[in-house]
Amino acid sequence: MLNDLFTSETVREAWEIFISEFPMALWETFYVTVVSTLLAIIIGMPLGVLLVAGEKNGVLPLPAWLMQTLGVIINLLRSVPFLILMILVFPISRLIVGTTVGTVALIVPLTIAAFPFVARLVESSLRELNPNIIEAAQSMGASPMQIIVKVMIPECVPSLISNATIAVTTILGYSAMSGIIGGGGLGSIAINYGYYRYKTLIMILAVILLILLVQLFQTLGTKLTVKCDKRLKK
């Protein structure tokens, strides 16, 4: 198989496709990942805050049934494999973006799959906060909202950024599955050429680009985390 990989024909073909299709695919993957992550954060962040603040001993205790329902919904959505979820949310995609195929349609299942994940990540970030700091804020007369907005979230920024990086790379991985439902991006190139048409070299190229994207996001995320953390200042 390796002998077949680098024949002059496959290399030439791969290069042609690399020039003609890859720039657009790269952009699509990037765009879908970033937009889906942002939407997932917009929905998931408040839920993650509620998961911590709404507890019995939290700063804003919510009724137990509400907390349980929230927990169950999040766990349910997290248990459905992304491949199945993509198909299950077809009706919702059609409702929101008017279609079930293509790059934009992919944003819907990605967001639905990612926001419960983001909620759990936010939850774990906020739980790292020393509870004594919250008590100190209470002793100064902070209201529950002030504690959330001025203490919990700002104090957890480094951890939140670090977890956002995990979210981005995971969503990038999900987006690569989109080829199956006719979404765009590097993932569909890898599947369409590599799997359906046995053009392994093209698949490898697509995977390499995906790896580079993950590296890029991870490096940026780590840098930003360290830069934001005032505990690391010397």
Partner: peptide
């Protein structure tokens, strides 16, 4: 709770672990 929050500005507290906000100057 609301009245209490304003009274707490009159009765402040310091702690063993200092409990400063680490991300603020």
């Amino acid at each position: 709770e609301k009245e209490l929050r304003s009274v707490r500005r009159n009765v402040t507290m310091i702690f063993q672990g200092f409990n400063l906000l680490m991300q603020r100057t």
